[in-house]
Design a protein around this nucleic acid. Structure first.
Lengths: 93, 93
DNA sequence: TCAATATATTCCATATAAAGCATATTTACG
DNA sequence: CGTAAATATGCTTTATATGGAATATATTGA
């Protein structure tokens, strides 16, 4: 049910969709949070440059939350996963 | 499977656990990312003050990702949900 | 308990996010 | 098409995150 965000770019559209599903304009949402319309716009356009704090504020207003989840499928750090050989057990979640 | 983050404070411990499950010290993780041990410490201690950008970087290194999900259970904005009466349908996810 | 390692904290300089304002651009609709 | 609402963008100022160094504190293990 959660929308996975692997790159920061993916977040903007999600936020926008969420907001619109709530029938809110940027100005309206902003008002609820004491933020300007411009600010909301920027948050939706470049969420990567947003402080977690502020992102959270917006998400709360939209009845959403963040989740930290294990990364799906194919990707592995090219520089060598190596997940601590001798240490604790296997699964890292 | 994802760990829900409803307040920014909850994120720190999650990050720390994740890192440790990977058998990495703050210094080691930092090195992988070109960041100092001190920085990692700060990120784990006050993740709210971190840019999404940077959080993402850390999560990637730990094979994790973010998800945006509908908020669980009881919470509703006290100022009235009202989810756009006349507009599009019902469910807002 | 002592030493080694890991983590936290303070201070300072610099980069950049946040906020406000004006205005441009786009979108929705008569 | 014309007009109004919604959204985006450039600019300036201010607040704050980032980064580095030094150092304190805590944790772990012999």
């Amino acid at each position: 049910m959660g929308t996975p965000i692997t790159t920061t770019g993916q977040l903007g559209p999600v936020l926008q969709r969420l907001r619109r599903n709530h029938g809110l304009s940027q100005a309206a949402l902003g008002q609820k949070l004491g933020l300007s319309q411009e600010r909301i716009s920027r948050i939706e356009r470049s969420p990567e440059k947003v402080t977690l704090d502020q992102l959270m504020t917006v998400l709360m207003a939209l009845n959403a939350e963040l989740q930290v989840a294990p990364r799906e499928a194919g990707s592995q750090s090219a520089t060598g996963p190596k997940a601590a050989p001798g240490k604790r057990s296997g699964e890292d979640w």
